[in-house]
Design a binder for these strands. Structure first.
Length: 166
DNA sequence: GCCAACGTTGGC
DNA sequence: GCCAACGTTGGC
């Protein structure tokens, strides 16, 4: 199992929105490196740090889990969408997405400044200069440390607690 | 709103 | 296939 961090602008889609929806297709990624991670590397069950970007303060807000892989992003075929890609076809879709399901909202929101202050997170992709990948890998060690600092164990919740979320 | 860093596009 | 111009991301 691998770990990931995915960025979302909370005024567009927040951890509270995911908690409400239960699961969502991760539409709108138009960066090839991020797409390749979703298409080639992510597996059902991988866990995701849900990061709020372009907000004050930016930071990690909660946890999600990959619930489906290999989905064609529907927005690429929607001429009304900002994410419309006229060069993509349903037969050969260019933009592949995953679906994520809500796991948890962190008891303690960990801001970017908080993350930068943790020596144990040195080398994390998020903290590298100029890094702006919206879908990025996270090491198991970094993932566990962030969960711990956010007041949540890194262990998976029981089926019961996952099923109870709305 | 600024702007550094990075990614993409397209002329050649 | 180079690279200048342009567009985007996202922290500040």
């Amino acid at each position: 199992m691998q770990y990931w961090l995915m960025k979302s602008e909370p005024h567009v889609y927040s951890i509270a929105d995911l908690a409400r929806d239960g699961k969502t297709g991760w539409e709108g990624v138009r960066n090839y490196q991020a797409r390749n991670s979703m298409r080639d590397l992510m597996q059902v069950g991988d866990e995701v740090l849900f990061y709020h970007s372009s907000t004050e303060p930016p930071g990690v807000a909660g946890l999600a889990r990959i619930s489906q892989t290999g989905l064609a992003d529907p927005s690429q075929f929607d001429s009304q969408s900002d994410y419309y890609d006229p060069k993509s076809t349903p037969e050969n879709p260019r933009w592949i997405m995953v679906e994520i399901e809500y796991l948890d909202s962190f008891p303690t929101y960990l801001s970017l400044a908080d993350l930068k202050a943790l020596p144990g997170l040195a080398g994390m992709v998020l903290l590298q200069r100029g890094s702006r990948l919206s879908v990025q890998p996270v090491s198991a060690e970094h993932f566990a440390l962030i969960c711990k600092k956010a007041g949540r164990s890194a262990k998976k919740p029981s089926k019961k607690s996952a099923a109870r979320t709305k």
